[in-house]
Structure formats: structure tokens, C-alpha cells
Simulated assay, not measured.
Amino acid sequence: MLTLERKTLIQNVLRRDGRIVAKSFAEELGVSEDTIRRDLRELAKDGLLQRVHGGALPSSPAIADYHVREQMASSAKEKLGRAAAGLIKPGQIVFLDGGTTNLQLARNLPPKLEATIITHSPSIAVELAQHPSVEVELIGGRLFKHSIVSMGAASAEAISGIRADLFFLGATGIHPETGATTGNREEAAIKRLIARQSAETILVATQDKIGAASPYLILSLEEIATIVVDADVPDKLLEQYSATGPAILKA
């Protein structure tokens, strides 16, 4: 089998099964494990999969620029945003992570909701400026342009002084083996800090992020209270997540 054929097959198997085990896949094809590992390295370099110990997982599609992502699956994100917004109770202190799905959450907050929303996303803060009864606190710092959020020491210091009831986490991938992940180490650290300062973490994930992985761990599944997903995600797929701890809310 030619290299191109093997790589195509690897991607097909990842789409079908959600993972590749290098040793068993090499035995199945009758090639060396080193050959498969080399293929995985090259595919990972091209951003076509995420390497993990012993094999590979599908890579997250959420690598495009923010304004490109904002146009992707907009109707699904709006539906998820409405469902997530319904989890916020009057009087709560809520931290909204950056991201295009959480932007939809901000847009779908009930007009009469009285709550405090903290965010390190300028886009979300500007959106909430139009809300009649929500108090908005914006965390400052150095702007991370890919996600349009502030990061760095100033952000971390401000976040450390906050105690939130809910944290709506944004991630580029969620997988039973790797948990919630993202593509930037510093961004992952800021998200973990916010989660530590919050009583409950809720992940709102479009279907393309389910079963995908990125290089940097944010939280394990056990640390996530609820995952909000599209109603079209198959129950069988979600069993792997709910068995680990999070409640599943279908939008």
C-alpha cells in the first residue's frame, strides 16, 4: 500500500471509529508500527489528526480565525446558546469564556435576567452592553487574537480574585480520553484557572468538537458538570461522556 493510500485510510478510520491504535492498525495492514507512527507524525504536522500515546485522535476543526468561525454552524450555535442561557439563574455570578458559541449565549440571555456576567472576551462584553439588566465585568490583559480574549499575568491576577457560580467553558475539542482541550498552552492555563474559581463548569460544544482533540488539556471530563450539545448528536456517542460524570443537556 502506498503512503498516500495509508494516510487516506487512517483519516477514514478516524472519522469512522474516532481513534487509531498504531500497533493494531500496523498489524492489520501488515506494515511496521514505525511506518504507521511516521504516517501519524506527518498527518499531525499537517493538522489532520492529534497524536496521543499509542496512536491518534481526530483533530479539532476549530483552528480557523475568529471571524471565520463566527460564520460556521451559526444556526446550531444559536440553538446551543439559547439552551445554555436557560441554565443561568437570577442573581448568579457567571463567567463567560470567549468563543463564537458563547457569543450566541450572550445574545440569548433573557431581557429581564438580573445577573453579573464576567468575561475576558471584548466581543462578549460589547454584546452584553446592550442588555438592560445584566452587570458586566470585563477582565483586561494582553489580547489573544485567535480567540479574541485577554490573557497574561494581568488577566490571571484579576481572575484569581473572582468566585463565580457558573463558568461556561469554550474548548476546541472534547473527547472521552483527553477531556476538554484547546490549541494554545497559555489559553488552556487561563481556562483552568477560571474553572478553579467557579463552583460549576459547563461546556457548550458544537457537534464538530465532539470526539475531537487539541494539544493542550483544559479539564478532564470528571471536572465538567454539564455538556450542552446539539440534539442531533447520537445518544450512543454521548454515553462515553455521561458515564464519566458530566450531565448531558441536548439543545
Rank of each mutant, 00 (worst) to 15 (best):
Thr101Ala: 05
Gly54Met: 02
Thr35Met: 04
Ala106Asn: 08
Ala76Pro: 01
Glu42Phe: 01
Ala115Ser: 14
Leu103Glu: 13
Ile36Gln: 06
Gly86Lys: 15
Tyr66Trp: 12
Leu80Asp: 12
Gly81His: 08
Leu105Ser: 04
Ala125Lys: 09
Pro58Asn: 05
Gln104Leu: 00
Ala85His: 06
Leu105Ala: 00
Ile117Cys: 07
Leu49Cys: 14
Ser123Thr: 15
Thr35Tyr: 06
Asp34Lys: 13
Ile124Phe: 09
Lys77Asp: 00
Gly99His: 12
Gln71Gly: 12
His67Ile: 11
Asn102Arg: 10
Glu70Trp: 06
Gln104Cys: 11
Gly99Asp: 12
Leu49Arg: 08
Leu103Met: 10
Arg38Asp: 01
Thr119Trp: 03
Gly47Val: 00
Asp46Leu: 14
Glu114Pro: 11
Phe95Ala: 12
Ala125His: 09
Ala85Met: 03
Ile118Cys: 13
Arg107Asp: 01
Leu103His: 14
Leu113Glu: 02
Arg37Gly: 00
Glu114Lys: 15
Arg38Cys: 00
Ala125Leu: 05
Asn108Lys: 08
Asp39His: 06
Asp97Lys: 04
Lys77Glu: 00
Gly47Trp: 02
Thr35Lys: 02
Arg107Tyr: 05
Gly47Asp: 01
Asn108Ile: 01
Phe95His: 10
Val52Ala: 04
Pro122Ala: 05
Ala125Asp: 04
Arg107Pro: 01
Met72Arg: 15
Gly81Phe: 04
Ala125Phe: 08
His120Gly: 13
Ala106Pro: 05
Gly55Cys: 00
Gln92Ser: 11
Lys112Trp: 15
Ala56Cys: 07
His120Glu: 10
Lys112His: 14
Ala125Arg: 12
His53Ala: 15
His120Lys: 15
Leu80Trp: 08
Arg82Val: 14
Leu96Met: 11
Arg37Ile: 04
Pro110Leu: 11
Ser60Phe: 02
Ala76Tyr: 12
Ser121Met: 09
Leu48Asp: 02
Lys79Cys: 10
Pro61Asp: 02
Thr101Leu: 02
His67Pro: 00
Thr119Ala: 03
Val68Phe: 10
Gly98Asn: 10
Glu114Trp: 09
Asp97Gln: 07
Gln71Phe: 02
Ile88Leu: 01
Lys79Arg: 15
Pro61Gln: 07
Ala56Trp: 00
Pro58Gly: 06
Ile36Leu: 07
Ala44Arg: 05
Gly86Val: 11
Ser59Arg: 13
Ala64Pro: 06
Glu33Gly: 14
Ala64Asp: 15
Gln92Lys: 09
Gly98Arg: 10
Asp46Trp: 06
Gly81Ala: 04
Ser123Trp: 10
Arg37Thr: 02
Ala85Val: 09
Ala73Phe: 15
Met72Phe: 13
Gln71Ala: 14
Glu127Thr: 15
Ala115Gly: 07
Gly91Thr: 08
Leu109Gly: 06
Gln104Glu: 15
Ser59Asn: 07
Ser74Gln: 14
Ile88Thr: 05
Arg41Trp: 01
Ile88Gln: 03
Thr116Asn: 04
